[in-house]
Design a protein around this nucleic acid. Structure first.
Length: 495
RNA sequence: GUCCCCUUCGUCUAGAGGCCUAGGACUCCAGGUUUUCAUCCUGGCAACAGGGGUUCGACUCCCCUAGGGGACGCCA
């Protein structure tokens, strides 16, 4: 039985990269009559949030990738949330300790930092030097009873070569000397990703691990753990990484990466999935429009091309147009459209903002139309007419964007408080501060309340619009951005 | 800095030693249909990173170089 999984960590927006891995994992499993599961990797206490977990589940469901086992649907191998499996990891860490495959480490982060810096400067691989692995049992016991905080690290052979098998690339050889003595259990008692992923994949009987290329370098650690535990190694399939147009790893600063953005922009889930499928894979017939079912039916994991593809919004748009025109009849399109724009939830958000300003229904369109747009058509002249100085306007937009990129609480009052404080710190009058934002968000200088509008639009579309406004103003050069960033940081510390 | 991965038109890709005069798609350009626009149709521009091998024959196999990317966290 083939079993695959996708294992997102709930630390931010639902990322298209996650959907990409999920899609290929799903297709591979389903094609073999197997099962596809979803596991939440929330071992990072500080960064994981319930809200993020929910949007990730919602987004994957929206795309139509249904999992057979997961935190919401349950299953025989649960729990499917790592934070609920702590005793399991504890026990496995203990067994590694007992068998001499792991050791307690009491090193301070200062010492580790210095060590890594020195190693890099000396042309060496940055790696734990094994200091604490030399400690005697008495030393360790003494430190523990003294209450010194500790982590547990895995042991790694001092020499030799580790060979991992990648389904797509064949054998990959990495010297053990390159592999770090990875922390398996943190000071807070939580496992790190590396321990948890191995334990869970084994216990959940995952047969094929489909994940991003970024994991190749840590595969030897995982393989070593499988060996220590005496477990069979699942097959590894490392997918190419999605990229920005400038070829760097896909990131939200350079490209909209949140699945919600594409939903809010009015893309069809079928088209988004189809587009992700054509990155790295193609239907044997060459037809570029295909459904999830067709992809499952014809999928061949060995035909994945390994060059990392650039995520090209233009082509996605074209494909979405085809889906819309060729797949939806007028009835279906009407349903989809009303579901997207005129659903009750959305209308109930919009109505309070415009009710006071409306005399007849037809007033609604010009007033609230911008809430249904993607990126509003704006011109540099609109900013020129403002009292806000051009240099200040750019700064306001850029700083606000950075602020909004970090914002996790997207309620109106919170947004208002945050941006107001930003304005004060920048020493810009709130009027002058908000004016360019009004244009960026609504496309005009007169509009319903800004912060409520931002809530209706949602974080992804809001950020995209501010970014769009900056581009309309000629964009921010790299040099300029660097300067502004320094200034922004300084402001941040003044807050 | 060290290690790892990758490399066909600007972009997504087809290509499993002769089928390649390297095919398709997006974008762009030109033309046609359309009262406009869009759709649709026709045509065009445009690539095997470079250098060595192996072979009768290399986009396809091997080596080197270059370029790009990634990893080097008590993040995942």
């Amino acid at each position: 039985m083939v079993r695959t999984r996708v294992a997102p960590s709930p630390t931010g927006d639902p990322h298209v990269g996650t959907a990409y891995m999920a899609l290929f994992s799903y297709c591979f499993a389903k094609q073999h009559g197997g099962e596809f599961l979803l596991r939440i990797e929330d071992t990072d206490l500080a960064r994981s949030t319930k809200a993020s977990e929910q949007t990730i589940l919602d987004s994957l469901k929206w795309l139509g990738l249904q999992w057979d086992e997961g935190p919401d649907v349950g299953g025989p191998k649960g729990a499917y949330r790592q934070s609920e499996r702590l005793p399991i990891y504890k026990a496995h860490t203990q067994s590694l300790l007992d068998n001499g495959h792991a050791f307690h480490c009491f090193c301070t982060s200062e010492r580790l930092d210095e060590m890594r810096k020195a190693q890099m400067a000396g042309g060496q691989t940055a790696r734990y030097d094994g200091f604490c692995s030399q400690l005697t049992a008495e030393d360790v016991a003494a430190q523990i009873s003294a209450g010194t905080p500790f982590v547990v690290r895995m042991k790694v052979p001092a020499s030799g070569v580790c060979t991992i098998q990648d389904r797509l690339r064949g054998p990959i050889e990495i010297d053990y000397a390159q592999i770090d003595m990875q922390v398996l259990q943190k000071t807070d008692g939580f496992p790190t990703y590396h321990l948890a992923v191995v334990v869970d994949d084994h216990l959940m009987e995952i047969t094929h691990i489909i994940r991003g290329e970024e994991w190749i370098n840590s595969a030897p650690k995982h393989q070593l753990l499988y060996e220590y535990f005496g477990w069979p190694m699942p097959e590894l399939i490392h997918m190419p990484l999605l990229r920005n147009p400038d070829k760097s790893k896909l990131s939200k600063r350079k490209n909209p990466t949140s699945i919600r953005f594409y939903k809010d922009m009015g893309y069809m889930p079928e088209a988004v999935l189809n587009y992700l499928g054509m990155l790295g894979w193609s239907l044997p017939s060459g037809e570029e429009k295909f459904s999830l079912e067709e992809m499952v039916a014809h999928f061949d994991i060995d035909r994945i091309s390994m060059g990392a593809p650039v995520f090209d919004v233009e082509k996605l748009k074209w494909l979405n147009g085809r889906w819309l025109r060729e797949t939806l009849d007028d009835e279906a399109l009407a349903d989809r459209l009303s579901d997207w724009a005129f659903n009750r939830d959305k209308l109930m958000q919009i109505i309070p903002l415009i009710k006071e300003r409306v005399e007849v229904f037809s007033d609604v369109a010009p007033l609230a139309g911008f809430l249904l747009e993607g990126l509003p058509l704006i011109e540099a002249e609109q900013f020129a007419k403002l009292k806000t100085e051009p240099g200040v306007a750019i700064k306001v937009l850029q700083f606000s964007l950075w602020h909004l990129e970090q914002a996790s609480d997207w309620r109106s009052e919170v947004l208002q408080a945050g941006l107001k404080q930003l304005a004060e710190t920048m020493d810009v009058k709130i009027r002058d501060f908000l004016a360019p934002l009004f244009i960026a968000i609504s496309g005009r200088s007169v509009a319903p309340p800004l912060f409520d509008s931002m809530v209706v639009l949602g974080p992804d579309l809001t950020r995209a619009r501010v970014r769009h406004a900056l581009n309309t103003l000629g964009g921010v050069s790299k040099k300029q951005a660097k300067k502004l960033e320094a200034e922004y940081r300084q402001l941040g510390s003044a807050l």
